[in-house]
């Protein structure tokens, strides 16, 4: 996490956005300056306003702070394992552009929408 920690002062909270891939919650400025700490390798959000607009969402629900993504069951359930500690969203609305999904897949990240549209709890057989 960046030096200042993941805390977002309340004055900045209205600029919060959540990454559609990893659901980390940061302000637009933070995304713009340092990108997404988990997905930067393929999302390349830093200094890219358009990418931020496309790949992060202002519409999210449930704020979640995780201090230990490996031990926390919540983090595991939210598929946050291996991500940096910080503030995440439980549910992120929005549709990731196709090419971004492809880029994610190419870098080995299987993208599962975090908007509740895919039921994760009930695995169905192929």
């Amino acid at each position: 996490m960046s030096a200042g920690g993941a805390y977002i002062p309340s004055s900045q909270q209205r600029h919060m956005r959540a990454c559609m891939v990893c659901s980390i919650v940061r302000t637009f400025q933070q995304f713009n300056s340092s990108g997404c700490p988990n997905c930067e390798s393929f999302l390349e959000l830093a200094n890219n306003h358009e990418a931020i607009q496309d790949c992060t969402s202002q519409v999210f629900d449930g704020l979640l702070t995780v201090s230990d993504t490996s031990k926390s069951w919540v983090a595991r359930y939210q598929r946050l394992e291996g991500y940096v500690p910080g503030v995440y969203a439980v549910q992120v609305e929005g549709v990731l552009p196709e090419d971004v999904i492809a880029a994610a897949e190419n870098s080995g990240v299987h993208y599962i929408p975090r908007d509740g549209s895919v039921s994760e709890a009930l695995p169905t057989d192929a």
């Binding site: 920690g5 993941a6 805390y7 449930g62 979640l64 702070t65 201090s67 230990d68 919540v74 503030v87």
Partner: peptide, 22 residues
């Protein structure tokens, strides 16, 4: 989150794993 940040900065292990709201 702020408290967790403070703890981390102070070199302590945060006592909680996560906190969330719905």
């Amino acid at each position: 989150q702020k408290r967790i940040d403070d703890m981390v900065r102070a070199g302590q292990r945060p006592k909680i794993y996560s906190a969330f709201e719905r």
